[in-house]
């Protein structure tokens, strides 16, 4: 038990700190500061140009969706980064229990996604002149945290696929794009084709974005509790799928001797 807790916290922290090629202001500022702000501005201005939606709509959709950048890429890197530095084999022959090992790596990523998304929300609101009700801010922060958790669940699935796919960053880019289109980020679900809206319900961020928009419009938490619960539920499902897939592909890669080949 003690060793699992240790692996969860210390292993997770060490793994996050090992992303040293990311943890530099030269990467963090363009990626996590400028990136989300310009995505928000781009779609807000496209909306203005098309005469569709409001600044608030695009602000919330894109700020919450941008949590997917750290959540997908950093989780994908938990496998790909280990392979790149030739430590994947060492990690997987260790007797550490896999659940705390990988969930521990997810925790700092959730915090990272949460901070990036919240920062984008606040700065984007200032730049676009969107007034968010002060009372809604703590609840918005909570919804953003749940969304970051859900997206990290999906990130764990992409991390598992990294045991079979070489270009993890490419894969994460593709997943990022799918989330951009399907999750109601820039287009209300009601304006999407029925099948897309149906798929969206099973993706992370969809419910989080919907809940955040309602809160920003002044709804009480009780009105969005079920939606937030759905977001957490979707995240939990992906987390379990990710852990199962990691286990399965780890066994497969040992059996086929493909650990370093993917």
């Amino acid at each position: 038990m003690t060793s699992s807790v240790r692996i969860f916290f210390l292993g997770g922290l060490t793994s996050y700190r090992a992303l040293f090629s990311w943890l530099s202001p030269w990467v963090l500022v363009p990626t996590f500061v400028l990136g989300p702000i310009f995505q928000i501005l781009f779609f807000a201005y496209v909306g203005r140009s098309a005469g569709v939606g409001s600044d608030s709509f695009f602000l919330i959709g894109n700020a919450v969706q941008y949590a997917s950048i750290p959540c997908l890429f950093a989780m994908g890197n938990t496998i790909d980064g280990e392979r790149y530095s030739h430590t994947l084999g060492l990690l997987l022959v260790s007797p550490a229990r896999r659940t705390p090992l990988f969930l521990g790596r997810a925790l700092p990523v959730i915090v990272n996604g949460f901070v990036v998304s919240l920062f984008a929300l606040v700065v984007g609101a200032v730049v676009l002149g969107v007034k968010l009700p002060l009372a809604s801010l703590p609840l918005l922060a909570f919804v953003v945290a749940v969304s970051a958790f859900a997206c990290t669940g999906l990130g764990l699935v992409t991390a598992a696929l990294a045991l079979r796919v070489r270009e993890t960053a490419t894969l994460s880019n593709l997943v990022f794009g799918m989330l951009l289109i399907f999750c109601g980020v820039n287009v209300p679900l009601s304006a999407l084709p029925g099948w897309m809206a149906a798929v969206a319900g099973w993706l992370p961020l969809t419910h989080g974005i919907a809940a955040a928009r309602e809160l920003a419009a002044g709804a009480p938490f009780s009105a969005v509790a079920r939606t937030v619960g759905a977001e957490a539920g979707v995240g939990a499902i992906y987390l379990v799928i990710g852990l199962v897939l990691l286990r399965f592909l780890e066994i497969e890669s040992r059996r086929r001797a493909t650990l370093e080949l993917a």
Binding site: I181, N186, A191
Partner: peptide
């Protein structure tokens, strides 16, 4: 992905 988002936005116009 971005173009599709843009098309979906403009389709509402």
């Amino acid at each position: 992905f971005f173009a599709t988002s843009v098309f979906l936005i403009y389709r509402q116009s």
